[in-house]
């Protein structure tokens, strides 16, 4: 962490931690074309908490969660997810781990050639192979109702608005009952009202599905609404870590520029 003008924030005590470690990253480094994007990042995600990773565009937030799910391979450091060292897993073990993680992409990443129903069934049929047709149908209807879009079942992604796409995308990730959720800029490109709805939905998912989440964002309102804990990245390093209140009360100019 940089030793700038920030106020000393006490480390989080063990009593405050909600539970066991779901993710532990130590000394993560990642660069592209001789440019270091992440420089020695360490973080822990505990069971049942929402950790918001905050930072301006280009600070390496998305790279961080892509390393967690091994869409990118880090240059150095260790990443442990649910007790498994992500970088040493073989293909089958990695697939097994990925089945326990939901990843909400910035763009939604809904499959264009499939209807909403087929989008939701796609991971379900591959990950929960033991489910019967009736159970699949029930599960799809349940998650659609949970995101408030029960009537969108037979629509194509091109017929959905930005907010609806995000909701369906969220439904697709929770349909497999993940224990960890990774949100990549969940409110980017949405109007303030829809952003608030998505933030509320993230909290609902946390409560209902008992997920532990990392939320990557530069949207302060979303961070305030969803965070149990915030970690701020600046130039590829952890700049500050603490509660929302700690950030709001900070006199550090960089933090104040976010929390105006």
């Amino acid at each position: 962490m940089k030793n700038l003008q920030k106020e000393p924030i006490p480390a989080i005590s063990t009593e405050e931690k909600p539970g066991r470690k779901m993710i532990e990253i130590i000394g993560l480094k990642k660069g592209f074309n001789n440019q270091e994007v992440l420089k020695d990042i360490s973080l822990q995600l505990f069971s049942g908490e929402n950790l918001v990773v905050l930072g301006k565009s280009g600070s390496g937030k998305s790279v961080l969660i892509q390393c967690i799910i091994r869409l990118l391979v880090p240059d150095a450091g260790s990443i442990e997810v649910l007790g498994s060292d992500v970088n040493s897993l073989n293909k089958n073990e990695l697939d097994e781990l990925r089945r326990k993680i939901g990843f909400l992409f910035q763009s939604g990443a809904l499959y264009d050639s499939m209807t909403v129903k087929q989008n939701l069934e796609f991971p379900l049929r591959r990950i929960r192979k033991h489910l019967t047709e009736k159970e699949i149908k029930e599960k799809v209807n349940e998650v659609l109702e949970n995101v408030g879009l029960a009537d969108a079942l037979n629509k194509m992604p091109s017929q959905l608005s930005g907010g609806m796409r995000k909701r369906i995308s969220l439904a697709r990730t929770i349909v497999i009952d993940p224990s960890i959720m990774l949100y990549d800029e969940p409110t980017t490109g949405l109007d303030p009202v829809t952003s608030d709805e998505i933030s509320a939905l993230i909290n609902e998912v946390q409560k209902k599905y008992k997920t532990s989440s990392i939320i990557i964002t530069h949207d302060i309102e979303c961070a305030k609404a969803t965070a149990d804990r915030i970690m701020m990245l600046q130039d590829g390093e952890v700049y500050l870590e603490g509660k929302v209140k700690d950030f709001e009360n900070s006199t550090d100019p960089i933090i104040k520029s976010f929390f105006k």
């Binding site: 799910i69 869409l71 697939d95 097994e96 990925r98 089945r99 993680i101 990843f103 992409f105 910035q106 763009s107 990443a109 809904l110 499959y111 264009d112 796609f122 991971p123 591959r126 990950i127 497999i176």
Partner: peptide, 16 residues
Amino acid sequence: SMKVSEQIDAMEVSAT
């Protein structure tokens, strides 16, 4: 376009 819109990545992270 699936690559650009992260659909291929989405497939990969859903263990497909």
